[in-house]
């Protein structure tokens, strides 16, 4: 799947420009001076050993990091020429533009499949007139429609793990974000469900910018266009996935992708 003809990430139109980003948990300095460009409409994988700051980085992109007590961020994250950490930016509104899919599928247990798809809209006071069309279209988009179209009013938690995760992706798509953050989205799924979700990502990246944290290097190699390697709070290297896995510039990256540590 690796595309060998991709240009370096800095040569593509960037969806997100990260400048000197630092993240803290209380006194702990979790991310150090991260500067990076996330290319538009590509899938960028973030890899690195546990505790390297990859999830923290992801959570800085939709300002979920600051919800942790004592957490703090400095630096700039620019989307559409606006620094999302600008005082005038409302994090709640930002999160409708930057969706997030979590490690464990988390459909709302009190809601039906249909209500789950529409949750992001209805909870924000939007009652779309074409709700049925949105539900159908969004579920088709995540290849779930034919499986659930006759049981839209069943509980979202009645589905299998893989179906639940696709439902959660549909829930994000319904809000019409431009960026989707994926926090180890397949690590709770079996290989078949994982393969289906990965196919879905390959389609979604035609319309959305995807940023995926994964601890599975094969997955990063399979599905991503670009890969960022984080180590101990530093961004070691961000390049095309092919180069990261075959010919990285930094020896630390090579040691990691060849499995010598981590």
């Amino acid at each position: 799947m690796m595309q060998s003809n991709l240009p370096a990430p800095s040569q593509l139109p960037a969806r997100i420009v990260v400048e000197d980003l630092n993240a803290y948990f209380g006194g702990a300095h979790a991310l150090h001076h991260i500067t990076a460009q996330i290319p538009d409409k590509k899938l960028t994988a973030i890899i690195g050993p546990s505790g390297c700051g990859k999830s923290t980085f992801l959570r800085c992109l939709n300002r979920m990091h600051e919800l942790v007590a004592g957490a703090r961020v400095s630096g700039r994250v620019v989307m559409d020429d606006i620094d999302i950490y600008d005082k005038r930016v409302d994090p709640v509104r930002l999160r409708r533009r930057v969706g997030m899919v979590f490690q464990k599928p988390n459909p709302f247990p009190t809601m039906s499949i249909r209500e789950n798809v529409l949750a992001g809209l209805t909870l924000n006071g939007i009652r779309p007139k074409d709700a049925d069309a949105i539900v159908q279209h969004t579920l088709e988009r995540v290849a779930l429609w034919t499986e659930v179209k006759d049981k839209l009013h069943n509980s979202g938690t009645s589905l299998s793990g893989g179906q639940q995760q696709r439902l959660c992706i549909a829930r994000v798509l319904a809000v019409q974000p431009s960026v989707i953050l994926l926090d180890e989205p397949c690590s709770a799924l079996d290989p078949i469900a994982t393969a289906r979700i990965e196919e879905l990502f390959a389609e979604l990246k035609n319309e959305y910018t995807l940023v995926m944290v994964t601890h599975n290097m094969q997955q990063a190699a399979r599905v991503s266009d670009y890969t960022a390697f984080f180590y101990m709070g530093d961004l070691v290297e961000l390049d095309t996935t092919q180069r990261i896995f075959t010919n990285p510039k930094v020896s630390k990256t090579e040691e990691y992708v060849t499995g010598r540590f981590g």
Binding site: L67, G99, K104, F108, N124
Partner: peptide, 15 residues
Amino acid sequence: QLREASLALGVPQWK
């Protein structure tokens, strides 16, 4: 995770 799912959808804290 449910709290986070909701907040990440851009739903305000009180809702």
